[in-house]
């Protein structure tokens, strides 16, 4: 599903965010990306979502070399992913329903189909009864679940999450992780950047560890049982 080959990312100010990164993620995998802040976790996710391009090396997603994706093809590429942010990135002046419907709207989905899918996504995250609420009237955990519903509503094959539990207490964090687990069980590839060691340990999934832009460990599933 995702293949990094000798990927480096240098910023114009000379800072090296990623160095010679190589790894491979199979379709249907669920894994974590961890490391100190500034280790390059976010940059790695940004390369996959084409929010940035790598300086050297090659990033492949779903068999496609991202260097060959032209600027006007980027929206189409992003529609194949679901992205979840630490700060949710919901639109405060639109209802929960409209927020979740956004990816379907930009894809030109028919309105009956949209309504059906939005309700299904909200049902999956347990917020069907909140569809008319405004995002700011919801708790932090609920807002994050709306963000997840938005990420999965277009049924992408790949979910990227950047510190999805960063602002949540452990109980809510576990709920969120259980949601990701459920999506993974129906075949969605899930890549979560997190520095929450407790959660990563509890989940026992494959872990990529970054340190100062280098891949230092690639831990196989079940590593925490040892």
């Amino acid at each position: 599903m995702i293949r990094f080959e000798q990927v480096s990312k240098r910023y114009p100010d000379g800072q090296e965010a990623l160095r010679q990164l190589s790894f491979h993620i199979d379709a249907g995998e669920m894994l974590f990306l961890t490391g100190h802040s500034g280790a390059g976790k976010s940059t790695l996710l940004r390369l996959i979502a084409l929010l940035e391009r790598c300086s050297s090396g090659q990033v492949q997603v779903d068999g496609r070399n991202l260097a060959k994706v032209r600027r006007e093809e980027i929206p189409e590429h992003r529609r194949k992913l679901g992205i979840i942010f630490q700060d949710h990135r919901l639109l405060p002046d639109r209802s929960v329903f409209d927020n979740v419907a956004l990816p379907l709207l930009v894809a030109g989905c028919r309105s009956e189909e949209t309504a059906k899918r939005v309700r299904a996504a909200l049902d999956q995250v347990g917020l069907l009864h909140k569809e008319k609420s405004m995002p700011l009237s919801l708790s932090g955990g609920e807002q994050q679940r709306v963000g997840i519903a938005r990420a999965v509503v277009a049924r992408p094959a790949l979910l990227l999450a950047d510190e999805p539990t960063g602002n949540l207490d452990p109980e809510l964090s576990n709920e969120i992780m259980d949601l990701f687990l459920r999506f993974n069980q129906v075949g969605v590839t899930v890549l979560i950047a997190s520095h929450d060691v407790a959660i990563i340990r509890r989940m026992g999934k494959r872990v990529l560890v970054l340190d100062q832009g280098e891949l230092t460990h690639d831990l196989a599933p079940g590593w925490s049982n040892d």
Binding site: A49, P75, E76, H77, R79, L91, L102, P103
Partner: peptide, 8 residues
């Protein structure tokens, strides 16, 4: 946000 979710 619209660009993030794939708005052309």
């Amino acid at each position: 946000v619209v660009k993030l979710v794939g708005g052309s």
